[in-house]
Each structure stands twice: as C-alpha cells, then as structure tokens.
Amino acid sequence: MYCVETDHLTYRFARNEPVVRNVHLQVPQGSIYGFLGQNGAGKTTTLRLILGLLKKQQGIITIFGKSFEEHRLQILREIGSLIESPSLYGHLTAVENLTIYQKIHQAPKNRIQEVLELVGLSGTGKKKAGQFSLGMKQRLGLAIALINKPSLLILDEPTNGLDPNGIIEMRELLKQLQREQGITILISSHLLAEIEKLVTHVGIINQGQLIFQGTLPELMSRREQSAGIVLNTSDSQRTMGVLEQLHLGGAVESSGVVLPFVQKEIVANIARELVRSDIAIYGIQQRTDDLETIFMNAIK
C-alpha cells in the first residue's frame, strides 16, 4: 500500500519546458522516503503538486489510496507539511503561531505545548517568531506541521539553516516520529549524505524525471557499482596502455583515468607499473560516491 502515489505527473510553468515529467512516485506506508535531487531538479514542484499548491496539469495524485482532487479536505486533515522556508507570522509568538493552526485543525489546546516540547521551543515565551534564529524558525515550522498529529509528513529541505547539531536532532526526531507514531515521512533534500542515515526509501529526480526509486539498500548497491579509482598522471594515454597490460579496463575523463573499484593490492601494482613505465603519478584517489556520480550513472 502506497501512502503517496503519483502517475505520469507532469507540470510546466507557462510555455516553458516541463519541470516535472511523467513522475511516478511511490511512497510506501510507514516509510521515510528521501526525495533527492539537485537544486532545480523538480523536487519542490513535485511536492507542491502533491499538496495542491500548484494546479495539476497532467497525471494522477493519490494519497492514502484516495484521489487528491476528490478528497482534498479529508486528505489535508491527515497531512503536515513544511515547504521551503517556514511560514511564520513574524509579529506573533511561537504559541500564537501554533494557535492559528491548532484552531483550524481543531486540535486540543495541550497539543501546542506537546509540539513545542517535541521541537525544543517550549521556553521561547513572549519572543516573536520574527526574532527567532533560522534554526528556531525551522523547528517552529516543523511544530506547525505536527500540530494535527499527521499520518503523512511532507518536508521540503527541512534541515536548511540548521547547524550540524540541529541536523542530528531533527533526524532523531523524525526517526522517533516514524518509529513511535508510524508516520510516513516524505522528505526532500539535495544532499544524499544528509538523509542517508534517516531514510528507508529513496527517489532521485533529475531534470524533472524520476531516475531512481527504491529502497536505501538498492541505492547503496548502485553506489558501490559506481565507485572507482581515479589515476591522475602525466600521460593519460600511456596510463591506459599500462592498464591494458594489467588486463584492467578504464576510461579517460576530465579528472584523469578512471577505472572500476579494485582491491588495494592491485592499486599498489598499478602504481608500481606506472613508475616503471616512467609515468609521473600526481594522485590516486577513490572516486567520491556523491549524489552527482549516482545521478550520472543513473542517467547513463
């Protein structure tokens, strides 16, 4: 059962190229789904479409197994969201900001204190939200998203502006929410490293297209496949010759000669052969398995 499902979701601003193309998102119930993509990849547009903040042009959006268009109010009662920067009334206190949403959702009054304690803002008193630090604003935004005890939490880059400690705290809080309350969390980020310790499932979007979707172990398996060694030498062509002699494949790229991941003994042997062939070695590095690399491999 998918908590959120989109089918052939496509969206374009004015007459421009589509920013979201045929996205088929499947967020399993009870999962923490990391929605990854570089800036401008289409993450926020997809999330805004799911929440009805953008008028859908093409495709189907189903949440909790129901069509969003037909059951908008019923679905929104069960959703908490934080899209981009938090929406806070700067002239009001944290309690007043939460009261606005507590009243709309008809949540019990004591829920305000509960969520404030949950995000660590219970001591802000009469301080106006406009005077909060970026991290505090982000946490208050999360408190607003939690005020109605949602079954689905949609968070767009919620760690923006948080310090490393704040990121860890937010991660632990989200894990706790998923573990204890069974909330499904759809969280977007442009940094894989930031959410890989949190998510159970991953979707990667690039130029509006979903290029990978699966569990975290599936992504890690792809990541290992994409790992490699980069040889930075004085002569890339002769280096390729040395690799051929050793029956190793490789390719010349802008960063140097790249070959698939090999054991360290083989790396030492390559280095020995390069020196013997009088080729200067400027560097031997393991290729970083960043999101960009995975993107590139997924696109290939």
Binding site: R48, L51, G52, L53, L73, Q74, L76, R77, I79, S81, I83, E84, S87, Y101, I104, H105, I144
Partner: peptide
C-alpha cells in the same frame, strides 16, 4: 502555502 495546505 501553509494556509492553503490546511483543511479549509
């Protein structure tokens, strides 16, 4: 954006 994602 927050107001329009409330059940109203």
């Amino acid at each position: 954006k927050q107001l329009h994602t409330t059940p109203q």
